[in-house]
Write a protein that binds this DNA or RNA. Sequence first.
DNA 1: TAGATTGTTAATCGATTAACAATC
DNA 2: TAGATTGTTAATCGATTAACAATC
Lengths: 206, 206
Amino acid sequence: MNRSNISMAVIRRLPKYHRCLSDMIDKGIERISSKELSETIGFSASQIRQDFNNFGKFGQQGYGYNVKDLLEAISGIIGLQHTYHLIVLGAGNLGEALVNFGFDKLGFQVDALFDNDPEKIGRIIHGVEVIDINILETYMSKNPVDIAVITTPGKVAQKIADRVAISGARSIWNFAPVDLIVPDDVVVEDVHLVDNLMTLTYLLNE
Amino acid sequence: MNRSNISMAVIRRLPKYHRCLSDMIDKGIERISSKELSETIGFSASQIRQDFNNFGKFGQQGYGYNVKDLLEAISGIIGLQHTYHLIVLGAGNLGEALVNFGFDKLGFQVDALFDNDPEKIGRIIHGVEVIDINILETYMSKNPVDIAVITTPGKVAQKIADRVAISGARSIWNFAPVDLIVPDDVVVEDVHLVDNLMTLTYLLNE
DNA sequence: TAGATTGTTAATCGATTAACAATC
DNA sequence: TAGATTGTTAATCGATTAACAATC
């Protein structure tokens, strides 16, 4: 039950449990066994029970799991009880798309966009202001930033990562096609879209 | 050397080899040992040699690997010698961002965007026309589609997947937060952005 | 109570790492 | 030739699956 011992394989399955259980709530399903959940989610019943038992005992022998309670437990494990403050570095199409994606319902609030383009600075995009990247440090000294989202070109991504890390960002969600180097206490999650496309083409030629 | 036996763990490392070797070409590096590559890429030298030897013998004892030859070999393994025809389903911010991402340099050509919004149909976005989703089948009967990119809301994603699959799309790059059900011969690669965000928040609370 | 299903231990499977003979 | 480094086999490690006692 020590979070730092949990393998990444388990951690990466948590969001899928969250999504699947949310769907079940919407459908009015009240209880579920690991066997039934297995059929919906595609993980083995054994793996499901192993996964949950990394974090505690959420079921009841002979009954299964209460969907609502289990969803709440998993939300808590993931950390969805908190609201997270995001800033997006790079007000291009991708940055704009992320502002508009609808993460806010889950507690992810984009507070500001940053760019170096004078044409964009000062504009409001989906209710979020575009701020001059030159005053990033000033902004960060006054506002908490949990997640810095990097959507800049690859060439400047490391420099931006350095700046947000030194200014106190706790984590980076990186869309630039580079492997960032950050201090030990900064968490990085990469979305390497080109890598995904290449995986797809490999499988296409199998 | 039978492609279908290769594990997904290996396949998902191929794009990173590609990126790392491309960077080395740009830097003018001509040869590299698995040990040196290990230090740059962060995989063990042993793993690197194991990975390559799934596909053939690309090195030379006592010398290492020729960077240019190795990059060409890996490009070929991934399938980058071909050009791929893409269509994007959903002309929202994300669809627009993907059209503009710059994949074309790697051989990924977006031929068309599809949407159901009369305001958008007929418009040209970054040189790509937005077509009425109602004539998707007509379009696909006349044009080859290797990769169908789904950027629609989750609710309609499965229906769109069904339509592109039956019309002959060979693969789907899915950005909707659903697990698509497709015929066996259609390859799906998911980009579940909400899942990535949740993984990040988990790690943030570790 | 009997049936069902969890929580947990043991067995299996697969992926990574270590070691070294082959060879450039 | 001697040194270096691959290709490949063997050992280890970790993750998944199977099994079953505990118990609701």
